[in-house]
């Protein structure tokens, strides 16, 4: 039982990463009816930007070996700056890879997205080389124990930040003018431009917000697993994409929930079966779900196609 709760916490943390990334996939889908296939690599780039800004802020705020400001301020600055920079990256991706192809076959835009992702990975390798970097430990790890279950402050922080960002997104979408424009556009992509809201503003904004969330996920992920790797976005990104699909395309909170569900599936599969079988079983479950529930948990059956 203790073991179960321990893993419950792990699954919650693992699911937060998926959920944050899946949100970006789902938001872009809602607006453009297209998935941003470079999104996994935006997560990776976000983590590396986080590494850079974390080192930068640690440097300027320290005298000698001692930091003059508390760790959490550096962490907040790191997350915010990484989110901001990744948002710009997201807008660039939209401009290069998606805007010119808005009326092209959907598969073509998927290809450009994939290719931008590959360029991000390879570009990272070309600039930083094959060596692995480790993320600085900005705040000290504190461990608590309650009834045999171990909590670290980082785990709780990660889940809390993830939930906070999701809540913020929810408020943004429900309450602000731009959020409403986004919702309207995912409801009817043709009517909204007629009402004076340009796709050329809403689409980059959506990419920016999604990329910002992915970058936040990247920094949080690096806190939990500090060794960075240019290919880290591939595996996580694809799984988050799966979560976005399972949540139902374009259903934003569905994507977040499915992200957590996927996290739970993976952690509990690894709890019962050998870890080498984790991917196999997770993907078999996904395949089964999609075969019997082809439109995901929360999506409606509308027949957009990734076709010619």
């Amino acid at each position: 039982m203790v073991y179960f709760f321990q893993n419950f916490l792990n699954a919650l943390q693992w699911g937060s990463f998926y959920a944050l990334i899946a949100l970006g996939y789902s938001m872009v889908y809602g607006i453009l009816m297209l998935f941003n296939f470079a999104h996994g690599d935006v997560f990776m780039t976000g983590a590396y930007i986080g590494l850079g800004t974390a080192l930068f802020f640690t440097m300027i705020f320290s005298s000698g070996a001692v930091s003059v400001v508390p760790g959490w301020i550096i962490l907040v600055l790191t997350i915010l700056s990484s989110m901001a920079l990744a948002s710009i990256l997201g807008m660039i991706i939209e401009r290069i890879g998606y805007r010119p192809l808005r009326n092209a076959p959907r598969a073509s835009a998927a290809i450009t997205g994939l290719m931008i992702g590959i360029i991000l990975e390879t570009g990272n390798l070309a600039i930083l080389g094959a060596q692995r970097f480790s993320f600085p430990s900005i705040i000290d790890t504190v461990t608590w124990e309650a009834g045999g279950i171990f909590f670290t402050n980082k785990k709780i922080l990660i889940v809390a930040v993830a939930l906070f960002l999701m809540a913020a997104l929810h408020v943004f979408i429900k309450k602000t003018k731009w959020g409403m424009a986004m919702r309207a556009m995912s409801y009817d992509p043709l009517a909204v431009p007629l009402m004076g809201v340009s796709v050329n503003i809403v689409a980059p904004m959506t990419f920016a917000i999604g990329s910002g969330l992915a970058a936040a996920a990247g920094v949080l992920y690096s806190m939990a697993y500090p060794v960075l790797d240019p290919m880290m976005g591939v595996n996580l990104g694809w799984k988050a994409f799966v979560a976005a699909i399972l949540g139902g395309r374009g259903s934003i909170m569905g994507a977040a929930l499915a992200g957590f569900i996927l996290g739970f599936i993976e952690i509990f599969v690894a709890m019962i079966f050998p870890s080498t079988l984790r991917d196999l079983i997770a993907y078999s479950i996904i395949l089964a779900i999609l075969t019997f529930r082809p439109y995901g948990f929360f999506g409606q059956a509308h027949s957009a196609q990734l076709r010619l």
Partner: peptide
């Protein structure tokens, strides 16, 4: 029953499964 994005995921899951097997 499904096309497009779902098929992309199903086929991708297939590739990962084969690799994992």
């Amino acid at each position: 029953r499904t096309r497009g994005d779902y098929l992309a995921i199903i086929s991708l899951a297939f590739t990962f499964m084969i690799k994992s097997i």
